[in-house]
Lab assay of single mutants.
Amino acid sequence: NQESVVAAVLIPINTALTVGMMTTRVVSPTGIPAEDIPRLISMQVNQVVPMGTTLMPDMVKGYAP
């Protein structure tokens, strides 16, 4: 099972992602793959992401799977 990126904290809208904001977990449905965390650093979320929420591609500005 592939791990997906999950919010480790509440991430406010338009916040640039940092390593500490993200964790990984096997979830269903799957979100952004864990191995993409290095690509996500400094990208901004386009909505509020509650802690424990799986990051989906459409939540991150400029992210393309």
Rank of each mutant, 00 (worst) to 15 (best):
V48Y: 08
L17D: 01
V26G: 07
R39I: 12
T53W: 05
P29W: 03
N46H: 10
T24C: 03
P33W: 09
I37H: 04
T18S: 12
S4I: 02
M51I: 14
P33K: 05
A8M: 06
N14A: 15
D58P: 10
T18P: 01
P29T: 07
M21V: 05
N46S: 11
G62E: 11
A7F: 02
S28M: 13
A7C: 02
P65C: 05
S4E: 00
G52V: 02
R25G: 14
N1S: 14
A16Y: 14
P29C: 05
A64L: 08
M51K: 08
A16N: 07
Q44R: 11
A7R: 00
M56I: 11
V6L: 05
I13E: 14
V49F: 01
N1M: 03
V49N: 01
P65V: 10
T18L: 10
M21N: 09
G20A: 15
V5T: 12
V6N: 02
K61V: 09
P38L: 07
L55H: 00
V27R: 05
V45T: 11
I37R: 15
T18K: 06
T24E: 08
M22Y: 02
V26C: 05
M22I: 05
L17M: 11
V60N: 01
P29Y: 06
R39L: 07
N14K: 15
T24S: 10
N1H: 03
Y63S: 04
R25S: 11
K61A: 11
T54S: 05
Q2G: 15
M59I: 06
V48F: 15
V45W: 01
I37A: 12
T18H: 09
A16M: 14
S42M: 13
I13R: 08
Q2S: 11
V60S: 01
V19L: 13
P12I: 03
T30M: 15
P50T: 14
T24P: 07
E35Y: 05
I11K: 00
A8I: 05
R25L: 06
T53G: 05
M22G: 01
L17G: 01
G62C: 08
T30D: 08
D36E: 12
D58W: 05
V6Q: 07
V19S: 14
V6G: 02
M51P: 12
T30S: 08
G52S: 15
G62N: 15
I41K: 08
V26R: 02
V5K: 00
M21Y: 09
Q47T: 05
G20H: 15
A34D: 15
M56P: 00
T54A: 10
M51R: 14
P50H: 10
A7W: 02
V9I: 14
T18G: 07
S42Y: 12
L17Y: 00
Q2W: 04
D58E: 13
E3Q: 04
M59E: 01
R39D: 03
T54M: 06
P33Y: 14
A8L: 13
A16W: 08
V6K: 02
V5N: 00
V27Q: 07
V5A: 13
V60R: 00
T15A: 13
R39G: 06
T23A: 06
I13D: 14
V19N: 11
A64Q: 07
R39A: 06
I11R: 00
I32R: 00
A8F: 06
Y63K: 05
L10G: 13
I13G: 12
P65Q: 09
T30E: 15
P65D: 06
P29I: 08
S42F: 05
Q44G: 06
I37T: 10
Q47M: 13
V49M: 05
A8T: 13
A34Q: 09
L40H: 00
S28E: 15
I11A: 00
A7K: 00
R25N: 15
P33D: 05
V19F: 14
T18I: 14
A7P: 00
M43Q: 09
M43S: 09
I32G: 00
V60D: 01
T24M: 07
T24W: 11
V60T: 02
V45M: 06
K61M: 13
N14R: 14
M22W: 02
M21E: 03
G20S: 15
G52L: 12
V45A: 11
G62K: 04
P65T: 06
V48N: 11
T53F: 08
D36L: 14
P29Q: 05
S28R: 02
I11T: 00
A8P: 01
P57M: 05
L10C: 04
N14E: 08
A34H: 15
P57D: 08
V27H: 07
M59L: 11
T24Y: 09
T23M: 08
T15P: 00
R39H: 15
P50A: 15
R25I: 04
I13A: 09
P33I: 09
T23Q: 08
T54H: 02
V27N: 06
S4Y: 12
A64E: 12
E35H: 06
I32E: 00
M51W: 06
V48T: 13
T15V: 14
I32N: 01
T54N: 02
M22S: 01
M43P: 00
M59H: 11
A7Y: 01
P50F: 04
V27T: 13
Q47W: 04
V26K: 03
L55G: 01
P29S: 08
K61R: 10
T53E: 07
N14L: 10
T54I: 07
P57C: 06
P57I: 05
Q44S: 11
E35R: 03
P38S: 08
R25Y: 07
M59Y: 14
P38E: 10
T30G: 05
P12R: 08
V48W: 09
V19H: 15
P38I: 10
E3I: 04
M59D: 03
L55R: 00
I13P: 13
N46V: 07
A64P: 08
P33C: 06
D58C: 13
P12A: 15
L55T: 01
R25F: 09
M43W: 07
T54W: 02
E35W: 05
T54Q: 06
V48D: 04
D36F: 08
P29V: 12
L40G: 00
P38V: 08
T53V: 10
P65I: 08
M51N: 13
I13F: 10
P50Q: 13
G31S: 04
G31K: 02
I37N: 02
V45Q: 00
V48C: 04
N14F: 10
V48L: 12
A16R: 09
L17W: 01
D36V: 11
M59V: 11
P33V: 12
P33N: 14
P12C: 04
T24V: 05
S28G: 05
E3N: 03
P65M: 03
R39W: 06
I13V: 15
P12T: 10
T30Q: 13
A16P: 12
M59S: 04
D36W: 08
V60E: 01
T18Q: 10
R39Q: 12
T18A: 14
Q44L: 15
T53P: 00
S42H: 15
T18W: 04
L17A: 01
